[in-house]
């Protein structure tokens, strides 16, 4: 009960302080809107919009979540207010979950921006919405923890931004979002399979157009494994570096 009060208040403070602040909201929204416009508007054929939808959803989540953690964690760490959280009588696991839940929710909201756009441009019939929702949750969790991993590996906000771009931009090309995996050069394919977004995008492809190439349960399992690993490694890093 007591730890729940701390958890809820950390989450709510971050929401009010960061996620719902106009500049951040717009930053969060700029990516999905930009992707959506960029890819949808130059594809007049309705079918193409649906083809692009899984990739655009994935990117919206990825960029929304990772940008936010650079602020909520790296910035607070830099200004030392994070120490207050480390000194509070709540476990590090719970603390990090509280600090990341906001980003997970934010990522999920971002995911549906391209969906709304697509609804105006094409028919969304026959989409497996339950699977879309589940995969959005999984992608949001995995990319949030990827953001966490980045945020705790660096000490400056700009480093966090640079470092996340180091992960994010290659993913655009390597995760089969717009270039199908099988069309990638053979030597790049193993790299694609090492990236979590590949699996998230593939589930979405199955859910939207039924043209994924990886078995859905396997993809969920891989996303789960990535989340667990990234989270555990981040906690390890916080313990090692921030409680020095």
């Amino acid at each position: 009960m007591k730890t729940w009060i701390a958890f809820a208040n950390i989450l709510m403070k971050d929401m009010r302080n960061y996620y719902l602040k106009p500049p951040n909201i717009s930053w969060g929204l700029i990516f999905p809107v930009a992707w959506t416009l960029m890819f949808f508007l130059r594809s007049p054929v309705a079918v193409e919009v649906r083809d692009l939808l899984p990739g655009v959803i994935s990117l919206s989540i990825l960029f929304g979540t990772t940008s936010m953690l650079a602020v909520t964690i790296t910035f607070e760490r830099k200004s030392r207010s994070f120490e207050r959280l480390l000194l509070a009588p709540i476990s590090l696991n719970l603390l990090m979950l509280a600090k990341t839940s906001g980003a997970i929710i934010f990522g999920m909201v971002n995911a549906f921006i391209p969906v709304v756009f697509a609804a105006f441009l094409t028919s969304l019939q026959g989409i497996n919405w339950l699977m879309v929702l589940t995969s959005v949750i999984f992608i949001a969790i995995t990319s949030t923890f990827l953001g966490l991993f980045i945020a705790v590996s660096v000490s400056q906000v700009f480093e966090a931004q640079t470092f996340s771009n180091f992960f994010r931009f290659p993913m655009i090309f390597l995760c089969g979002l717009f270039i199908p995996l099988q069309d990638l050069p053979v030597f790049l394919q193993p790299l694609s399979y090492a990236l979590p977004l590949t699996y998230g995008a593939d589930i979405l492809k199955t859910a939207v157009n039924d043209n994924g190439i990886i078995p859905v349960p396997l993809s969920f399992l891989v996303l789960l494994a990535f989340s667990a690993l990234l989270f555990a490694y981040s906690i390890y890093n916080v313990n090692r570096k921030w409680i020095s």
């Binding site: 007591k2 009060i5 701390a6 208040n9 403070k13 207010s81 207050r84 959280l85 509070a88």
Partner: peptide, 22 residues
Amino acid sequence: NLYEELNGWENLCFCGALYGME
């Protein structure tokens, strides 16, 4: 090391919440 953007009241209430205060 309080939160720069929060006001005095919010800072205090938040710190109380960290210790599980209703």
